[in-house]
Amino acid sequence: MSGERASWPLYEVFVRPRRGLNHVHVGSLHAADDRMALLAARDLYTRRNEGVSLWVVRSDAITASSPDEQDPFFAPSGDKVYRHPTFYPIPEDVPHI
């Protein structure tokens, strides 16, 4: 009854809310091809002028890091406080810094 739809790939949808902003992930949908995904994304995610530009990307084309947010993958940045401006004490009377 619905086997033909089960084979439709999943797409992730990204919307640029207005010029000057990044595309942001808003959700996903199934479609038979890229064109249909784009039309469905318009109908589903921009019914109220939520966007001026849409990206649809096949979910299986995305490579992701491990789900674990404590992952050692991100460890290299964990101990480098000197990358932040607040690491450097500057006297309060120094202007414009």
Binding site: E4, R5, S7, W8, D33, D34, R35, M36
Partner: peptide, 17 residues
């Protein structure tokens, strides 16, 4: 749904984008 699948099979992943 069948027509959309058949169209995708014929025209490839990009559809008519």
């Amino acid at each position: 749904r069948e027509a959309a699948s058949a169209y995708a099979a014929k025209h490839g992943r990009k559809g008519s984008a």
